[in-house]
């Protein structure tokens, strides 16, 4: 079946040093998250800030540890399709549910 094969679209995965850097970054962000939580003055921006940081963490794990940055874009698309679909339909459902009461 080799004739129709498109060339593999995977690039080399990073090595341990880069993984450790990512992990240190993740640890620091987690620290910041907990810090924000205890910060008395930050109540008004707490939710958006925490959500932003969790998106950063989510993306770092996805891009580096799950290799989405290096592997074929198909994987990214399937995964993002699931995430976006979930966000949209559950947001709509929640809005109608919360407005109902």
């Amino acid at each position: 079946m080799s004739e129709a094969v498109t060339p593999p679209v995977e690039h080399a995965h990073p090595g341990p040093a880069e993984y450790i850097k990512v992990a240190v970054f993740l640890a620091v962000v987690t620290g910041i998250e907990v810090g924000i939580y205890y910060l008395k003055g930050a109540r008004s921006v707490l939710a958006p800030a925490l959500i932003l940081l969790s998106i950063v963490k989510f993306s770092m794990v996805g891009l580096y540890f799950m290799h989405l940055k290096f592997d074929t874009h198909l994987f990214r698309r399937v995964f993002i399709l699931g995430i976006v679909l979930a966000l949209i339909v559950y947001a709509v459902a929640l809005v109608t549910l919360l407005n109902y009461h």
Binding site: L85, I88, V89, T96, N99, Y100
Partner: peptide
């Protein structure tokens, strides 16, 4: 198919917008 589910629930009273 993902954007039409509430038409099964019209009589629930979701309100005019929904």
């Amino acid at each position: 198919g993902w954007g039409v589910w509430a038409h099964h629930m019209f009589t629930v009273g979701l309100g005019p917008y929904a």
